[in-house]
């Protein structure tokens, strides 16, 4: 029977050196890191909310996908090492309730034929305790919309849900920061500042396809 002490006893200098190299090579994939994928079967929702002077409206979609990797510490206050994430939203699926306005959003502003996804990738900057079992997680990374990438910090509330987590995020962006031009005519009713709200669920990648 080969035990860890047995290995240590049996290992000569060359074996120990080989093990060291192997462990270093595989260090980025530490066994404690856990990857989660967006649960496509959950009630995910992403809202793009425009609050203009004349008219408010929101574009809604459930088509969010991506992954979150929690580092060695998991979702623990103060522990952010080894974490990263990538999220994307299918902008062509945004529904404002009016087909014509959807087409204007797709064709005039977001140009979804060229830039079909809004993406957000980065890592956790901070994890702290929130209220009612939620944790406050700050993510810092690059937000990509309309082919333009901007560095942003986004605060999300995250709580355990089933075998994974539920995340709720809200933040504002300026369309002008992403080279999206709003026609300067009186009857256009799209605000430059858009509030994005994300509410989505992730499950461990190895349980993908199973109910949480």
């Amino acid at each position: 029977m080969l035990t860890s002490s047995g290995i240590h006893a049996a290992a000569g200098p060359s074996l120990r050196a080989g093990l060291a190299v192997l462990l270093l090579a595989t260090a980025p994939f530490g066994a404690a890191a856990q990857e989660y994928h967006v649960d496509l079967n959950a009630d995910n929702v992403v809202r793009f909310i425009s609050e203009a002077t004349i008219e408010d409206f929101e574009g809604v979609t459930e088509r969010i996908d991506g992954f979150i990797v929690l580092g060695d510490g998991g979702l623990v206050s103060g522990a952010t090492a080894g974490s990263d994430f990538y999220l994307e939203v299918d902008l062509g699926s945004l529904d404002t309730g009016i087909g014509l306005r959807n087409r204007h959003m797709r064709d005039n502003y977001l140009e979804t034929d060229r830039f079909p996804y809004a993406t957000f990738s980065g890592s956790f900057a901070e994890v702290s305790e929130g209220n009612d079992g939620w944790k406050r997680v700050t993510g810092a990374g690059d937000l990509g919309i309309h082919g333009v990438s901007r560095s942003v910090e986004v605060a999300c509330d995250v709580a355990p849900a089933g075998s994974g987590f539920r995340a709720r995020c809200s933040f504002e962006v300026l369309l002008s920061d992403f080279d999206i031009e709003i026609p300067k005519v009186m009857f256009m009713k799209l605000a430059d500042e858009i509030r994005l709200e994300l509410d989505f669920f992730v499950t461990p990648a190895h349980l993908e396809g199973e109910s949480p």
């Binding site: 990857e35 088509r63 991506g66 992954f67 990538y86 994307e88 299918d90 062509g92 079909p116």
Partner: peptide, 12 residues
């Protein structure tokens, strides 16, 4: 970690 997109962009 090798996440892959699971669906194509929606047809408009």
């Amino acid at each position: 970690r090798n996440w892959e997109r699971r669906s194509a962009p929606v047809d408009v």
